[in-house]
């Protein structure tokens, strides 16, 4: 029998990283500040998690400008989308398996 926990991704054990992925799945592109407001986290905390996700190739970073202010936005990569979907499927299987 296939282990239902197989699809679970260690990277998404963090609530904040999981939150970032959940937001990016439904929003094509979103800025650092909007992420911060929605997840209610501090700058430093969010930045660390975003770097982690970027290093894993799950998200893309775009550095842009609005006037002179930097405007960094984030979007999901194809592997990121797949990892997230697999994670959800694994979660659902776990619930089904236990019931």
């Amino acid at each position: 029998m296939k282990n239902p926990i197989n699809g679970l991704n260690k990277i998404f054990e963090s609530r904040i990283r999981l939150g970032v992925m959940s937001i990016l799945v439904v929003n094509e592109e979103i800025s650092f500040n909007d992420l911060k407001q929605m997840l209610e986290v501090t700058d430093g905390n969010l930045a660390t998690h975003l770097v982690n996700l970027e290093e894993n190739g799950f998200i893309k970073v775009h550095k842009g400008f609005i006037g002179r202010k930097t405007n960094t936005t984030y979007s999901l990569t194809k592997p990121g989308e797949k990892a997230f979907t697999d994670h959800i499927v694994a979660l659902e299987n776990m619930i089904k398996g236990i019931k």
């Binding site: 999981l18 979103i30 929605m38 979660l91």
Partner: peptide
């Protein structure tokens, strides 16, 4: 966890 994900997706 699934509920949280859903809530965040909807809210965002």
């Amino acid at each position: 966890e699934i509920k949280d994900i859903r809530r965040i997706m909807e809210r965002s």
